[in-house]
Design a protein around this nucleic acid. Structure first.
Length: 470
DNA sequence: CTATGGCACGGATT
DNA sequence: AATCCGTGCCATAG
């Protein structure tokens, strides 16, 4: 099976070759857009950067024509406008270089800080890529070979960097499978602690029965006394996790005080005006260079004085530059309109919890904005939104049909007095006006990482045992 | 017999 | 056209 084609190689190509068709900027993340625009800017002298105008009252930088949307909110509804990301160094105009905000460290930065010093610049960019590919559990879903091919780097380099990542905290990060994550953790623990002998073979070969608590089965397979297996299981449960990424998120990604500058990584930031819980939502859409990249008018007039091959050459450049400018503006207008709709329709979800998400589809938004469905798909893909709670979520979360129901399932089980079976949960959902099949409840429960009722029983028993022991 | 997970189908969504 | 999602059916474990 071929891996899905990715955007960056395609972009490198178009940036250096002829830009004849409209470009797909919409489908790119903010970082990719920035990379692309910088390369176009460098390769086309007919393009120039201009400075944004400033709102006379609030001094905010304005990237689109018209009055300041914050000081002059046009009408009812959310306030949506373009802004440059508060990144460092990126802004060639020298404006808007905000100081590094104090913020809880993100996992990606935490990892880079650990391995950065021992890597060459080239390896560091490999590390950047690999870390960005880690899934929500901190595991690496992509093979080294795929990454190497994508990065155009030797396999050995990729593997070296990956191994460096795997030696980082939290232990097991960057492993390619839950099993590998567990093994890495065991090795690290073994340096300072005694590890029950049964632990390694259980991880390697009997993980499945372990999950079901089938200690007898394992004991027989390994020819070990059952208590030893149980001790090993307890060790695994207490000390190891197949999802190393979650341990970091656990203490770092908790809802934090909303810090307006926290949002390096999102392309859309939702917030409320201070002291205005009832006020309109304010949405900043981060867009590198937008509104400031334009065809240099001097070159435009200059071209008219040229002739022959030289003139043709420059006309081509100007045409290309105009196209870039147009595509860029077009894609940004679409994202802004999307942002406005999200803020309007999902206000409760943005300010509140998953449960308040209202089901919505890309197709419906497309109809409302009178654009093609694929346009909305691209506008949503590879982008993230920062919510006032401090959470950063992929935009696709806004279109998750089952999110709010899963949230209800979670709370039903959290508040249960005795372990409820899936059928019972399904019944309770029906009472609340959410008819879902029993099978579906099972899937939602699994998605939330909740064990089946029978196992929640033993989990309870173990928890209370541990509690009374301590 | 009950609870659950695997598989596969069909319709919706991208 | 490809993928995702909810669901029903069936096998299996307890």
């Amino acid at each position: 099976m071929l891996p899905a084609q990715r955007a960056i190689p395609r972009i490198r190509q178009t940036a250096t070759a002829h830009l004849t068709q409209t470009m797909n900027l919409l489908g790119l993340s903010r970082a990719e857009q920035g990379e692309f625009l910088n390369s176009v800017l460098a390769s086309n002298p007919a393009l120039e950067l201009t400075k944004p105008t400033r709102c006379p009252t609030c001094r905010r930088a304005l990237y689109l024509p018209g009055p300041c949307p914050v000081c002059h909110p046009a009408r009812e509804g959310p306030i949506v406008f373009l802004a440059t990301p508060p990144g460092r160094g990126r802004d060639e105009s020298g404006e808007e270089n905000l100081p590094e905000p104090a913020q809880p460290e993100r996992l990606s930065d935490f990892l880079l800080r650990q391995i950065g010093p021992e890597l060459s610049p080239e390896e560091r960019s490999v590390a950047n890529y690999l870390i960005a590919r880690l899934d929500e559990n901190g595991l690496m879903p992509e093979s080294s070979a795929e990454a190497a091919r994508y990065l155009h780097q030797p396999l050995a380099v990729v593997e070296k960097v990956l191994h460096a990542i795997q030696r980082c905290d939290p232990p097991g990060i960057g492993a390619t499978s839950p099993i590998e994550a567990l093994l890495i953790q065991v090795e690290q623990l073994a340096e300072t602690h005694d590890v029950p002998q049964a632990v390694r073979p259980i991880i390697l070969e009997h993980l499945e029965p372990l999950a079901h608590g089938e200690f007898g089965l394992i004991a027989r397979a390994l020819s070990l006394p059952r208590p030893e297996v149980e001790a090993a299981a307890k060790f695994i449960r207490l000390n190891l996790t197949p999802y190393p990424g979650r341990t970091f998120l656990g203490h770092d990604h908790q809802p934090t005080a909303p810090d307006p500058e926290l949002y390096h990584e999102a392309e859309m930031v939702f917030r409320l005006a201070p002291n205005a819980a009832e006020g309109p939502l304010i949405v900043e859409v981060y867009a590198p260079l937008v509104g400031r990249l334009r065809v240099n008018p001097e070159i435009r007039t200059l071209v008219k004085t040229l002739s022959g091959a030289e003139r043709e050459n420059w006309e081509g450049k100007v045409e290309e530059a105009a196209l870039v400018e147009k595509c860029l503006r077009q894609s940004q207008v679409t994202v802004l309109r999307l942002a406005a709709i999200l803020a309007e329709e999902q206000r409760a979800f943005i300010l509140g919890t998953d449960r308040e998400l209202i089901p919505m589809t890309r197709a419906r938004i497309a109809a409302r904005l009178e654009v093609h469905e694929s346009t909305i798909s691209r506008a949503v893909s590879r982008k993230r939104a920062a919510l006032p709670s401090g959470r950063i979520v992929p935009l696709s979360k806004f279109f998750d049909r089952s999110l709010s129901v899963r949230d209800v399932v979670r709370s039903i089980i959290a508040e249960e007095n005795r372990p409820l079976t899936d059928t019972e949960v399904a019944g309770m959902l029906k009472e609340r006006g959410i008819p879902v099949a029993r099978r579906t409840v099972a899937k939602y429960r699994a998605m939330e990482g909740i064990l089946p009722a029978a196992l929640r029983r033993t989990q309870r028993a173990q928890r209370s045992a541990a509690l009374s022991a301590s």
